[in-house]
Every structure is written in structure tokens, then in C-alpha cells.
Simulated scan of single mutants.
Amino acid sequence: MNLSDIGDRICILGPSNSGKSTLANAIARKRGLEAVHLDQLFHRPNTDWEQRPRDEFIALHDIAIAGERWVMDGNYSVCMPQRLRRATGLILLDISTASSLLRYFRRTLFEKDRLGALQGGRDSVKWDMIHHIAVVQPRNRKKYRAMFEEFDLPKLQLSSLRAIKQCFRDWDLAR
């Protein structure tokens, strides 16, 4: 599949720490799209990942999806139906739980200026996040795979870190 085949409104779904924001930024630069990171809309800037009120998040989300040219990374099932109705293409990153955990520790311990990070926020190892990756996400993976199959959009599933790296090469994306 060519990058242009997935259109100008692209949703990237997948587990935490799978590389959604990195891929979204690379696609945005290559295609001249706005990169929208749902973590930044869901959490208040300049906090330690404090959540916004639900209505405020949904309003910010709906403003973002009203645009004509974007690549949006994140799951947040509370507003996924309207996002997927606006999307022209879908990418599912479906990497293993072990890979997500490894990437989480690398990102929180070593990456200071991460693309898609919360403005003014602090990435640090949190037990809640470890639990989310190790326990909650494996259950969600089945839900996201089923949702991915349900939608009749141009779509691409990348099921390993190797497949994601190959996608970067195939589409000539810069990190």
C-alpha cells in the first residue's frame, strides 16, 4: 500500500508505547498533514498527566477531526466512532506487550524531547501505566483488531517493530 492510498485523514491506533506518535509525526511531515496527538488533548499541559474533564476532551477532539487534513494518533474509545467516520485511512500498530513495556521504559528513562509528549509534562515510570500496558492493553488489543476489521477504509496493520521499521523505509519517512 502506498502512503497516498490512505488519504488525508488518517487514524493510527494501537497499544501505548507502540510508536503511534512517532509514525504520526513522520507521516505529517511527509504529507503536509496536521499531527494530532490525542494524549495532548486528553491531558492538561504542564501537569503530570492530569486528565481534562471528559466534555472538554471530546470538544477538543471534535474540533480536531473537523479539519480536512490530519493524522491522529491515539485510541480513546469514548470518541472513536466519530473519528473513524471522518477518517480516510486507518493504521493499526499491533506490537507485543513486551515490546510496549520495553519502549515505555526507554521513553520514560532516556527520551527527554519526545514527539507527542505532553507539553510541560513529565514522563516518569508509573505503576499505573505498567499495569495498563501489561494487564489492560492485552484485552483491548482484541477490541482494536475487531474494530480494524469492521471498517471499510484503506487500512494497514503493522504487527511488529520490524514491520513498523519496514513501513518507514517503504514510505521514505524520516523519524
Rank of each mutant, 00 (worst) to 15 (best):
P154C: 00
K165M: 08
D5I: 02
T47Q: 03
R169K: 15
M1K: 04
S96R: 12
T97G: 09
A134M: 13
A64M: 11
S21P: 07
I27H: 01
R114D: 01
G116T: 04
D113K: 10
A59S: 15
R29M: 14
R162N: 12
L102S: 12
A174I: 15
D5Y: 00
D8M: 01
R83V: 12
K126M: 12
E68C: 14
Q51H: 13
P15K: 10
F148P: 02
S96C: 12
R69A: 13
F148G: 04
K143T: 07
S100D: 05
F151G: 08
R83A: 06
P15Q: 14
N75S: 13
R139T: 15
K112Y: 01
A98E: 12
S77P: 14
S159E: 07
W127H: 07
P53M: 08
L158C: 04
D39K: 12
V136M: 13
P138N: 07
K142F: 06
K30M: 07
L90Y: 00
H61L: 14
P53K: 11
A24K: 00
C79I: 13
L23W: 04
N46L: 11
E68K: 15
G7I: 00
L90E: 00
R145N: 07
A87F: 01
D48Y: 10
R9H: 02
R69K: 15
Q157W: 03
P15V: 15
F151A: 12
